[in-house]
Design a protein around this nucleic acid. Structure first.
Lengths: 163, 163
DNA sequence: TATTGTTATACTCTATAACTATA
DNA sequence: TATAGTTATAGAGTATAACAATA
């Protein structure tokens, strides 16, 4: 049994015109999420300016490091990136010598993705630098407990209950 | 006194190489914020597809409705939109007959922004439609209490403590 | 000199269609 | 026929520089 959530339902009154309340920006979930996300990404971009690393590249390196050998469609799918747009992203990582495509033996259409030796070093450095950024965000939230609360709420918001 | 927040600090060990933990995507604040924001915006876009209204236009109409007469730089500034990019956005609202620029008497460089009569009706309809979208998001979060918790955390994350 | 609105421009991100080579 | 990767392309969103009118 879910709690009643009519916090924004317009109030009916007895005149002909319905009274409509224009929402305040600071109580709009989508808007506030967007501003917070931009703030965090801004800090991320500054943190990784020297390493010339964008959020999407960070994510791809992280997924390859955790599960090497996956194909492009799989990595792209997990991140919500269209496979057509993944190509240039992967080209960049390959050009920089951080990751590589290997011909898959079983299915010659697909590429299996791996980090290079340099990519492994880069990714470890990346994880350390990220840690400083993340700690800064946790500090702003007030601690790891608040971080966990936030992640739980974001989960409820954006995760399919049937999964 | 703020709580210690070393939740992601790398563990030192006694070998030469420092052990580095690659983070899991689901514990990365920025990534999770981004995915949640995309989810909410996707629902927003579907909700307003028939009215042909984008989030930025929604925000501008909302601010003009709440405080008519502000100039372009002021509205743009509150939303984090560059004044150069605000021009086309405002052109669109004016072309649709929803809002208008009026020559300001006091400072002839600036325009004061107002809703048209049609814009007022549109904005009231907009507020009602938005309410359904917002209630859907609140429902997912589990109720208004959880929504308030989320907004408070987003505030801590993205708001300057000195203000 | 500084500010408001504007134009032009470029860069990133995202979305779709169509091709190729394999399955 | 369907799938993996690719190319081309178009549309948003965003950032900067420079200009005219006005302060």
């Amino acid at each position: 049994m879910t709690k009643k959530t009519s916090g924004n339902a317009p109030q009916e009154n007895d005149t002909e015109e319905t009274l409509v309340t224009i929402p305040a920006m600071r109580e709009i979930i989508g808007y506030r999420l967007r501003r917070a996300q931009l703030f965090v990404f801004h800090d991320f971009l500054q943190t990784f300016a020297k390493m010339k690393l964008r959020p999407a590249e960070f994510s791809v390196l992280t997924l390859i490091a955790q599960t090497p050998g996956q194909k492009q469609t799989e990595i792209a799918g997990q991140l919500g990136i269209k496979r057509a747009n993944f190509v240039a992203l992967m080209d960049g990582l390959e050009r920089r010598g951080l990751a590589e495509r290997r011909k898959a033996e079983t299915d010659k259409r697909s590429h299996s993705l791996h980090l290079t030796a340099e990519g492994v070093k880069f990714t470890q450095k990346m994880a350390k630098v990220w840690s400083a950024h993340e700690d800064r965000m946790i500090e702003r939230l007030g601690g790891v407990a608040e971080r966990d609360t936030l992640l739980k709420l974001l989960d409820k918001l954006a995760t399919d209950p049937e999964s």
